[in-house]
Nucleic acid binder design. Structure first.
Lengths: 216, 216
DNA sequence: CCCAAAAATACCCCAACGGGTGATTGTTTT
DNA sequence: AAAACAATCACCCGTTGGGGTATTTTTGGG
């Protein structure tokens, strides 16, 4: 079965060229080519693509947002982002939007096909210079990883509230005053928090909280 | 001119195999092969490599730290990290250490040569499945980037050592035991840390430490 | 070489914290 | 209706941690 590809690209020249290449190559089929994301949901439903080729720069709804929307709504569809690539901060946002690959607009057609096949097979594709930019982004930075909804610790609202205060370094006494409850009550909540987070002291709780994104 | 490669790899079999391949291929030369990073600086100076092939898992000084040291000290040397790849958390830390490429240990020799050439030419190389893992980091985690050299708090070595333990949630008593000094001494160091970081308690110190990347 | 500053070491006091146990009241789930 | 959970408060007790003070060792500049 052909790999069905949908194109989002505002430049008519490139769009048509890509469409021609895809339809002229055995194993690939372009089932849709669109100049903007204004009607993306209907467009996707009609063209039923396996892979979306996405221009990062588009008028109106931009490619990054569109990527996010598509990957959220249709989780089997892979998005391959193409870019001309000067601004490197966009890469970072694009990476987070859930794309499966990054390719440059001046890559040769065979790279395009290779990349499409790779992401369709569940892999990833990164142009070497995209990889370079990505790596340089990380180089010599400190990174804190936060699991978004990795595990749910079933903290109650009150407990979350108190955990937040704990991460601020507030002593229990102050927390009690701020929340208009007894110190003993705070202590009880804190004990419950520790047991739910499987930690033994405040520091471990605070660390776990920030790493799991609970401190908000 | 041949591309000069140094190898850090604790497994003798793989190390010898790589060395043989490199020396047996025109255009490449292995100028050093080491089983650990114990003597890395002298090793690097003697072998004068263009590219370092680094095992991520090594006894003693681990590949990630070694990568950081090498890329900081010798900024023209490119590091290509090889991994067997089960633990995906390490990838992320490795990304931050300044490597130029990532390759899998079961990649075929020609991939190794390709990767070495690519990074030597100033590019980057990422095995497709490494790229996939990297991308999935972005899509499934929240990421906090921290500038490495924000402010220097002039912590002494001992103080940094203790701060690291503090962030682990170790009680002062355990820290004392681990460092073979008195509990009272640990206390004093901790107080100095607090005053240098302008914080009043352990929690604030731990927060500041992680946000500033001091916890390593 | 000497002295001052920084670092590392150490001790005491008391407030803060963590563990255990238990109790009351209201809500939610079964 | 019973059981589970949430939020509140209380007491005991031993441990940990923060503030003040002080001595020795190391280090760097004059």
């Amino acid at each position: 079965m052909d790999i069905k590809v949908a194109i989002f690209e505002d430049g008519k020249l490139i769009r048509d060229a890509l469409q021609t290449i895809l339809n002229g190559t055995p194993g690939y089929a372009c089932t849709g080519a669109f100049s903007n994301g204004g009607n993306w949901e209907a467009d996707i439903r009609r063209s039923q693509p396996h892979v979306v080729l996405m221009d990062i720069e588009m008028p109106g709804l931009d490619g990054i947002e569109l990527t996010r929307l598509i990957t959220q709504k249709f989780d089997t569809i892979k998005v391959l982002i193409q870019t001309v690539f000067d601004e490197s901060d966009k890469i970072f946002r694009a990476l987070c939007a859930g794309a499966s690959g990054y390719i440059l607009k001046n890559d040769p057609p065979n790279k395009y096909l290779e990349a499409i096949t790779e992401v369709h097979n569940g892999g990833s594709f990164m142009n070497a210079s995209v990889a370079k930019k990505t790596l340089s982004f990380f180089t010599h930075k400190n990174i804190i990883l936060v699991s978004p909804e990795g595990t749910d610790f079933h903290l109650s609202e009150r407990e979350k509230e108190i955990l937040k205060e704990l991460t601020e370094g507030q002593p229990l006494k102050s927390i009690a005053a701020k929340l208009f409850i007894s110190l003993e009550t705070v202590r009880t909540h804190v004990k419950h928090i520790y047991s739910k987070l499987h930690v033994a002291n405040r520091t471990e709780a605070v660390m776990k909280a920030t790493q799991q994104g609970l401190n908000k």
